[in-house]
C-alpha cells in the first residue's frame, strides 16, 4: 500500500505511535531491571528507574556466589540439556516408527500419544507426587527429566510424525534395497531430513524445562539441587530488602534467554507458537 495523501501519512504515524508505546511497555520493566542491577540499594530507592549514580558490579558477584546462583544455573543447565536430549531421541524414534512402519496397533498408539495434547499435566500432580515418592525419586533431578520427557511426547510426536510422513517414500525404499536396516534408515536418512522440526521441538522443550517453576517447586527440596526459577524464590525470601542484588539475580535469570532470543528470534517464534497451540 502506498500513502497517496497526507491523511494516510498521519494514520501511519498513529500506528507507529501505538506500537512504540507498547514496545516501551515491554521494555520499561526489563530496562529498569538492568539498570537496577548495577545501582546501590540506596540509589535504587531514591531513583527507581533513572541512570545509576555509579555502577555497582558487586551486586552480580553477591548473587552469583553468596546467593548460589552459580549452582542454580548449573542445575538448570543440566536438567534442560538432559531432558531436551532425551525428548529429541525418544520422540523422533517413536514418530519415525509411527510415520513409516505399518503394524496393527500403529493408529492406536499414535492416537494414545495425540490424546495427551488435551491432558493438562499439572492437574495430575497428586498421583504424580505419590508416584515420584514411591519410586524414590523425590528431590532428584531425574524426576524432573522423566516428567518433562513423558509430558513432551504428545506435542513432539504430533509434530515430528507430520514431518516424517512428508519424506518421499523413494528415499527409504532405495536405502532398503541397498540393505539398510530400520535403524540406519532412521538415523542416517530420516533424522537429517527433519532437522527444522527437531529444532522447533528442542527450542520449545528446552525453554519449557529452563523456565519451569511448578515441578521443581513440588519435587526439589534441597537448596543445592534447585533450578533458577525456584532458587530465585528462595533468594527472594532471604534477601527481601536487598533490591539491587534481587535485580542482579533477576537479570542473571532472564538475560541468557533474551540474548539467545535476539540471535535466534525466528526459530524461537516458530518453536513457541507451534508449541503452544497444543
Amino acid at each position: 500500500m502506498v500513502w497517496r495523501n497526507p491523511r494516510l501519512k498521519w494514520a501511519a504515524i498513529g500506528f507507529h505511535a501505538v506500537l512504540i508505546i507498547y514496545a516501551l511497555i515491554v521494555m520499561f520493566p526489563l530496562l529498569t531491571m538492568l539498570l537496577g542491577s548495577v545501582k546501590s540499594t540506596r540509589d535504587l530507592f531514591v531513583n527507581p528507574f533513572g541512570w545509576p549514580e555509579q555502577f555497582v558490579w558487586a551486586n552480580y558477584v553477591r548473587a552469583w556466589t553468596e546467593a548460589n546462583f552459580a549452582i542454580y544455573f548449573k542445575n538448570s543447565l543440566y536438567v534442560t540439556v538432559v531432558s531436551t536430549t532425551s525428548i529429541i531421541f525418544a520422540s523422533s524414534m517413536a514418530a519415525f516408527v509411527l510415520a513409516r512402519i505399518k503394524f496393527k496397533a500403529n493408529a492406536w498408539v499414535h492416537g494414545l500419544f495425540i490424546a495427551g495434547l488435551v491432558v493438562p499435566s499439572r492437574l495430575a500432580i497428586i498421583p504424580l507426587f505419590l508416584l515420584v515418592r514411591d519410586l524414590g525419586l523425590m528431590n532428584k533431578h531425574l524426576a524432573l527429566i522423566l516428567i518433562y520427557t513423558g509430558g513432551a511426547m504428545p506435542f513432539a510426536i504430533f509434530l515430528l510424525t507430520t514431518f516424517f510422513r512428508q519424506v518421499p517414500n523413494e528415499l527409504a525404499e532405495a536405502a532398503t534395497v541397498e540393505g539398510a536396516g530400520t535403524w540406519t534408515i532412521y538415523w542416517r536418512i530420516m533424522l537429517p531430513l527433519v532437522r527444522p522440526a527437531l529444532a522447533t521441538v528442542a527450542i520449545f522443550e528446552a525453554l519449557h524445562a529452563w523456565n519451569d517453576f511448578f515441578f521443581p517447586l513440588v519435587f526439589l527440596r534441597s537448596n543445592k539441587l534447585m533450578t533458577v526459577p525456584v532458587g530465585l524464590s528462595v533468594f527472594f525470601g532471604e534477601y527481601a530488602t536487598d533490591w539491587s542484588t534481587l535485580f542482579a539475580a533477576l537479570t542473571i535469570s532472564i538475560l541468557p534467554v533474551i540474548v539467545l532470543f535476539i540471535f535466534m528470534s525466528r526459530q524461537f517464534i516458530a518453536g513457541l507458537t507451534q508449541g503452544a497451540v497444543k
Binding site: I147, G151, M153
Partner: peptide, 28 residues
Amino acid sequence: YSFWLMLAPALLPYLVFKIYPFFNSILL
C-alpha cells in the same frame, strides 16, 4: 517386533508419568 524397542523410550515415560497419573487422579 524390533520397532517396539524404538517406541519404548517414548511410550514408557509417557505412560508412567503422564497417562497413569491422569487415570489415578480419577480413582483417588
